[in-house]
Design a binder for these strands. Structure first.
Length: 575
DNA sequence: GCCGTTTTCGGCCCGACTGTTTTCAGTCG
């Protein structure tokens, strides 16, 4: 059973949770958390490093002790020390930490005094009104736990970015009707354009804090005010999404924006850097040691500059090397939506799309594209009414006709060909030869063992007709995990064979993900960003793919549909 | 448990808010 980096991170994080409940040294606990996050953030396969005898302490926040534990996890699939802690601390207790208002101390108290081990135990205790009598709890805490338990049971904790946008925009419109608010901006993971967001963070500049907060809490979608303080207020919307608002009164807008945008890891790294420079960094500015007048606070640029750094785009603020790159003035010139000139993956009524070839072309032209590729499904994808060889040839004729008929946009001939279970392709080579663009993707048998799944895709990549590997990991956010796959091998194969990896811009996919984008770029692999649209409205999803690409540090030169159509065809034809 | 262009020991990011307290611990982002 192959051990993934995420498996290792999970075990390290569990160690941290249980150690914390047990009352271990807080810095020791933090070490496990930091190591878990480093392990998750690197793209190299750690199990492979162990096999090759690489020095694991070269991973940041991994020292001799944790390196040994990682080795044990890779070799045995588990960690003896964790098993021992589980004897003393019930494993399920760590789930209590997910409830707002319960941290390690309270979890411990609940366990020791009421013998609570699971969420169900807690629910029972709340029902019997036993929790309120514990030291440091009280009725209000009990009520809050009750609410949290209900929320935990009937809701996803994170929200798809595209869905969050639907809640955020009306809220922004509403806040803009507040006279006292001078400037309003969304920060947090929303501003970093992460594929899912935990909550919405809103920053409001203005001097009349009370009327701004009053206005905010009176928004019609607000169901509950969670807390209201001097400068910060949190509410929960009827949709279940939580919104934190901060009001900035003085000249510290940049400092606050930096702080509220995060990520937490990025912020911590910056504050450590400040300390090294004998400065203090907080959400009000950058301060020389012992002084209360900041040397920077008004803009983010000022803040970074005070730390001898270039401004870092929000999408990169994950502490994955961006601070080091900024220090060396070596930040990438990130791709923008305007750089894209075409969309080369979409479906029509020939298979499971809602619109005809001509409708898609007209809509894409309206959107501003120079070209599109029509890429309908092959026959194996029967639920979508996939095309057999003859039907595809007929569609190609129709594409040619539409291309002649419609001026101002080039329509390329393509297909999304299913990769069969054995790695062969679902259409014969002589038909694939006729295509301008051949995307190959997996749609079935997504749960094969890693070795078999990887081999299957590598075999498909040996077919000289494949141009692009579509939605490479197969993940569906919050619905389906990525396939068991050695993505590093896929990326290396793509580099060897000049195969393009797709960044599927469907907000449910966003596949490749940001980390693998970064790795692919490092290995010299080109990528494409396409919507996989099944209707004209979905052509507008392209921006979500661009988000992911920017989070993966990609520049225009890394993405093939920034090319003009002639250059693109030349590029595709040359391999 | 990790880490070091002042360190191999002694530090480890910072402040807001809440509830339960009589000055603060716990939790959160």
């Amino acid at each position: 059973m192959p051990v993934h980096n995420s498996d290792i991170a999970k075990i390290l994080r569990k160690m941290a949770d249980l150690l914390e409940i047990e009352g271990a040294n807080e810095f020791r606990v933090r070490s496990y958390r930091q190591a878990a996050s480093s392990v998750e953030n690197i793209t190299e396969n750690i199990a492979e490093k162990v096999r090759d005898g690489d020095d694991l302490t070269r991973i940041s926040d991994v020292g001799d002790s944790i390196a040994g534990k990682i080795e044990e996890i890779v070799k045995t699939g588990s960690l003896q020390q964790l098993e021992e802690i589980k004897e003393r601390v019930p494993e399920e207790l760590s789930k209590l930490l997910n409830l707002e208002g319960i941290g390690p101390e309270r979890a411990k108290e609940l366990n020791q005094k009421l013998n609570i081990e699971t969420l169900e135990d807690l629910e029972e205790a709340v029902k019997n009104k036993e929790v309120r009598d514990l030291e440091g709890f009280g009725k209000k805490v009990e009520d809050k736990i009750k609410k949290e338990l209900k929320r935990e049971s009937d809701q996803e904790s994170r929200t798809l970015l595209a869905r969050a946008v639907e809640y955020a925009e009306p809220l922004l419109d509403y806040l803009n009707t507040c006279d006292a608010a001078e400037k309003i901006e969304l920060a947090g993971s929303y501003r970093r354009r992460k594929e899912t967001v935990g909550d919405l963070d809103i920053l409001i500049a203005g001097s009349d804090v009370d009327s701004i907060m009053d206005h905010f809490t009176k928004f019609e979608d607000v169901e509950d005010v969670i807390k209201r303080g001097e400068s910060r207020t949190s509410v929960r919307l009827k949709s279940g999404i939580r919104v934190d608002a901060g009001v900035i009164t003085g000249k510290s807008y940049g400092a606050a924006l930096l702080y509220f945008t995060g990520s937490k890891e990025h912020g911590i790294h910056l504050r450590e850097r400040a300390l090294d420079m004998d400065l203090k960094l907080n959400e009000y500015g950058v301060f020389p040691e012992g002084e209360d007048k900041p040397v920077a606070s008004e803009t983010e640029q000022d803040m970074y500059e005070a730390l001898n750094l270039k401004w870092i785009p929000p999408e990169m603020r994950e502490d994955r090397g961006e601070i080091e790159a900024s220090e060396k003035d070596n930040l990438p010139d990130l791709l923008t939506l305007d750089d894209l000139r075409g969309d080369i993956h979409m479906h029509t009524t020939h298979t499971d799309g809602d619109s005809s070839i001509e409708e898609m072309a007209e809509a894409a032209k309206e959107y501003g594209h120079d070209y599109i590729a029509i890429t309908d499904h092959s026959k194996r994808v029967s639920v979508a009414g996939g095309l057999n060889a003859d039907e595809l040839v007929d569609e190609l004729d129709e594409i040619e006709k539409a291309d002649k008929k419609i001026d101002g946009i080039k329509i390329l001939k393509g297909a999304e060909v299913d990769i069969l279970k054995d790695g062969s392709l679902d259409l014969p080579d002589d038909v694939l030869d006729k295509l301008d663009i051949c995307i190959c993707s997996v749609h079935y048998y997504t749960d094969l063992p890693e070795d078999q799944q990887t081999e299957r895709i590598l075999k498909a990549m040996d077919n000289p007709n494949i141009d692009i590997l579509g939605h490479p990991s197969g993940r569906l956010l919050q619905e389906r995990e990525p396939m068991n796959l050695d993505m590093e091998k896929i990326i290396d194969k793509a580099a060897e064979k000049d195969i393009i990896l797709e960044i599927n811009a469907n907000p449910h996919r966003l596949d490749l993900d940001d980390r693998h984008c970064k790795l692919a770029k490092k290995r010299g692999v080109k990528m494409s960003i396409s919507t996989d649209a099944h209707s004209i409205g979905e052509l507008h999803n392209l921006k979500y793919g661009v988000n992911q690409a920017r989070r993966g540090w990609l520049e225009a030169g890394d993405v093939i549909n920034t090319m003009g159509v002639d250059e693109l065809l030349d590029y595709l034809g040359s391999d």
